[in-house]
Computed example of a mutant assay.
Amino acid sequence: MSDLETLIVQIRTEAEREIFPIDTGVYKAAGKEPTQPILYFGNLKSQICFFGRDLGRDEVYAAQPLIGAAGTLVRQGFYEAIYKKKPKTKKDLETVGDRAILTNTVPYKPPGNKAYSIEVKERFRPFIERLLVLHWEGNQIITLGTEAFKWYAPYGAKGEINKFFLREDRYEAKLKVTLAATDEQKMTHKREVTLLPLPHPSPLNQKYYELFPQLLQERLNEFEF
């Protein structure tokens, strides 16, 4: 069993250790085991990570993060930045996984569209840390929405994340933080990453939904593809 497979088993074991809210109806309809995590999609050798809040219905069916309405906007924008043309098929959108990883604060779908509690996020934080520090090789993280960005609060100076998020230029500015993860031998590993926050691209986010494609392209213009 690979280290990554071990991590996925550990996440499932934690999920089965104590009950927490999972939208079991969606998992059963999709023919998926509710406690099997949908941890990430993409290339762990890539430099870019798209980091969302949690899974939705479409993500459960596809067993991939960020593939519903909001995730499709992200994938379309990333595809256009790479290939300088619009994607025509779902297969085109799948190719973004060659150049990035897509993941979330919690690798499960909560009931309805309600965010997971702080307690649930903290239960699964050590596993997301291991994914980002021990398995992923990149250092550029595009966070999608307030909760995804504020997940990184423990890695900055006290109050730094909240202060940054109050800035008017928060969707243009960058912030460096140092992630830390503990391995199987209880050794701590660290990695400096750059956070590039964006608003959540949900159709329900009326303030930013129309602006999101342009904001994403401005972020991606900083990279060479």
Rank of each mutant, 00 (worst) to 15 (best):
A30S: 11
A30D: 09
Y27I: 04
I11M: 02
P21L: 04
S46E: 14
E16N: 11
F51Q: 06
G68H: 10
V60Q: 05
K45L: 15
F41T: 03
Q36C: 06
F41Y: 14
L4C: 00
P21K: 03
I8G: 00
G25W: 07
A62Y: 14
P37Q: 00
A81Q: 03
F41L: 00
E16W: 05
K45E: 15
Y40W: 04
P21W: 05
N43K: 10
I11D: 02
Q36Y: 08
G71H: 05
F50Y: 10
I19G: 09
E16S: 08
L4Q: 02
D54K: 11
A69C: 00
A63N: 14
E16Q: 15
I67M: 07
Y79L: 05
V60A: 04
F41I: 01
V60F: 07
A30L: 08
G56V: 06
Q76C: 13
G52D: 04
F50V: 07
L39M: 10
G31H: 06
Q36R: 12
Q64H: 12
G77P: 11
F78H: 10
R75W: 13
V9S: 09
P37T: 01
R75Y: 09
T13Y: 10
Q10P: 00
A30V: 08
A70L: 06
K84F: 13
V74H: 06
L39I: 02
L73A: 10
A69S: 11
V60W: 11
P65E: 07
G77S: 09
E5Y: 12
V60P: 04
C49L: 13
T24P: 06
F78A: 07
Q47L: 12
R53G: 01
V9G: 00
L55C: 05
G31T: 06
Y27T: 09
I11W: 03
A62G: 07
E5M: 09
E5L: 14
V60G: 05
R17E: 15
E18R: 14
T13R: 10
Q36T: 13
K45F: 15
L7R: 03
G52F: 06
V9R: 12
Q10E: 15
L55K: 04
E5G: 09
L55E: 01
